[in-house]
């Protein structure tokens, strides 16, 4: 049980770390990964990204994870964690 849980936690943290790097690098944010909370809203309150950032983010995720991102689901890019949720769902 514990090994399974630890593996789950480790895998999730690895995915979150990859997405943080992706967001920071592709949007050229002046931040270190540990300075971004994974539940922080990416748009509006929070990191205050804009619509151009959103487009860039969609393209980056599609390229990095070799997947198509639906543009009509506003919940996917709410935070680092919701992006990770989407990627995990897409793998299933």
């Amino acid at each position: 049980m514990q090994q399974t849980v630890l593996a789950l936690v480790s895998e999730r943290k690895k995915l979150v770390s990859t997405i943080k790097d992706l967001v920071i690098e592709n949007l050229e944010l002046d931040l270190e990964p540990h300075q971004v909370d994974e539940d922080c809203p990416l748009f509006g309150v929070g990191l205050a990204l804009d619509s151009i950032d959103a487009l860039q983010l969609v393209l980056s995720v599609e390229r990095e994870f070799d997947m198509t991102v639906p543009t009509d689901d506003v919940t996917i890019f709410r935070s680092i964690n919701t992006i990770a949720d989407f990627i995990e769902r897409s793998k299933d």
Binding site: Q35, D37, G46
Partner: peptide
Amino acid sequence: PLEAGLHWMVDFQ
């Protein structure tokens, strides 16, 4: 505050 995830209220630079 950073345990509470309030990173976005801080300008780290």
